[in-house]
Design a protein around this nucleic acid. Structure first.
Lengths: 121, 121
DNA sequence: CAGTATCCGAAACGATACTG
DNA sequence: CAGTATCGTTTCGGATACTG
């Protein structure tokens, strides 16, 4: 017999993407990948993040800084230079993200065709 | 030298949680965990999913059905009985989710204290 | 260069009540 | 039991313009 579900099974989960990790929003995961090879500047990040606005990029980077995923280093130069870099904690996210990407690579076609079949009916 | 970022590096990524997988919303991951041990009924799911409303649970299950993650089986009885069950595709999500949970288990304390430090300053 | 300031629309989520 | 129907709030992200 199947056990009944434990009513408290999610007691230690904070709301929104606690499990899985809080990288479920639109940009955080991509930013982490952009920073994989070393520090990057604000404008440098804008390019591959097609269509992100400066406001949203700032907000994302602030949130990631708060979570301890990135550091922000401002150099006192003219023109200004700011570099964002992954912390070890931020870098540790690359493992689960790689697994998720691998899932996508192998299973996304199945999901897509499931959707098509559902929408057709 | 670090390479410049490829402007097209996310060309094959659909918006919102494509990589990582579309389990970044508030409930999908938890529902999958609830269905891990076998089929469950609608009301049975409501219990551990503290505070979810029937409307939101229905919407989540419909989306998961559309993505091919769960099947919905209605039995012609009175009172009505409906069971939701993971498909093999849905079950395949347990692997990346376990990795994400493991990340949480080991690194969430670091994130939490990073937040506290940031908010204190 | 590296952001801020304002405004806006869409989507997610929740509260409450009702039904075959 | 397994939903649906309405309504309201909050959050997210985008558009556009401006600044030290």
């Amino acid at each position: 017999m199947r056990e009944p579900l434990d009513p408290d099974m999610f007691a230690d989960c904070r709301p929104v993407s606690s499990v899985p990790i809080r990288i479920g929003d639109k940009w955080t995961g991509k930013i982490i990948i952009c920073l994989r090879d070393g520090p990057r500047r604000f404008t440098e990040l804008l390019v591959p993040l097609r269509g992100i606005t400066p406001k949203v990029l700032t907000a994302s980077l602030r949130a990631m800084e708060r979570d301890g995923f990135v550091t922000r280093t401002a150099y006192d130069e003219i023109p200004p230079r700011v570099e964002y870099e992954l912390t070890p904690l931020g870098r540790s996210l690359l493992t689960p993200m790689a697994v998720a990407c691998e899932w996508n690579r192998t299973h996304l076609p199945a999901l897509t065709s499931a959707r098509a079949a559902y929408d057709a009916s």
